[in-house]
Design a protein around this nucleic acid. Sequence first.
DNA 1: TCTGGGGTCCTAGGACCC
DNA 2: TCTGGGGTCCTAGGACCC
Length: 426
Amino acid sequence: MKAIIDCNSFYCSCERLFRPDLSLKPVVVLSNNDGCIISRTDEAKKIGVGMAAPYYQNRELIEKNGVAVFSSNYNLYGDLSMRVMDTLKAVIGVHSVEIYSVDEAFLDLNRIPENKLYEAVKEIKDITEQWTGIKVSIGVASTKVLSKVANRLSKKDKKGTNGIVILDTIEKEREALEKTQIQDLWGVGRQYAVKLNNFGIENGWQLRNLPEEWCRKNLGGIVGVRLIKELKGVPCISMKDPLETKKMIATTRMFGRPVHKLNDLKEAVATYASRAAEKIRRQQYAATLLDVFVMTNGFVNQKSEYNPQTKHAHTVLPKATSNTNELIQYAVPLAEQLFRPGIKYLKAGVILGGLVPDSSIQSNLFLTPAQNHLPALMSAIDNINFSMRDDVVKYVATGLKRNWKMRQELRSRRFTTRWNELFEIK
DNA sequence: TCTGGGGTCCTAGGACCC
DNA sequence: TCTGGGGTCCTAGGACCC
């Protein structure tokens, strides 16, 4: 059996941890740039705040109901996420945990006897909540897709289920799938939901009973076939090897306000390149491919129809690198190449691909001594920036004023990752 | 005024090879 | 007059996820 464990309203729970006064109040967390609502507590859902809804459209509702609003604070969430994952690994073993996202992990329960499943899962839940202060829900079933179904039901009825749902018989599977609308299934997005609805399929049980060939034709080939099999309890999506290397690491941002000057665009791209370089160094990768993209105003004919246009340009790097200086030097010309005067840019990004473990970077006999010291320089900069605060040491190319920077007006303190922002008890 | 950021996987089609 | 077939590799783009 497999389980998926999921932190309840994760970002909001992180905020509440340091604001006990909000424990029963509605809370929402906004995306970067304070654009969308990306996490809501049950209380906020009840009031009618939509998921991924633009903040400005919900502002009135939020203010009228006294909802606490936070800008996203990824330092805080990232740190608490690590604590949750470390707890899971400590309880059931490193090799049985697959971190799926910042707030979710799949657990391999194969070594637990069927008749002890509930006990075991309950223990995992209790310990995680006690050690981290974050509430979680758990779904258990024979496949990943079914465990997601179970998890969703456990969250919907926290009181009735105690946050745990186990699908261990065909009858329970059937009941759960009949209760699950097609668009709420893991692997069915907007496009497929429309297609399936047109075909008269509305819940998970109906989908489960469709012929595989139909799904191969209409739901993305092999992806659709796997989905059906998983719904039938035949595992097709296995646990991932934790040692698998990533394929890309990206840093992309909307601008605080539209950018129309080449210089601002270059600064932003240089900044994202150094941010991305930090990320790959921390994860001990080096990149062989660098892609820069820009997004131009996607609002067509004043109708506020969101239709972003992006343009990419990339460079194959002559050798794998994680060096900020080098990556900036490749990234900035790509930004220049993409830039057109008179156009407003809303967003840009740097994607590092073709990742290899950085131990495989070959030292080069023909480099000058100064160049061979670059890794030491990079880690010195990383250490300073990490231990002090962001960007004490930075490249001039990344700009000094940064007037394109995103807005984060309502961010809480980084309680767990910055000494000068520690939680205070008076 | 105002719509996130960071990923994965799969497929179709073009380029190229013999 | 007549112009193959099969294979691989790469890339762009679409669909999905949280």
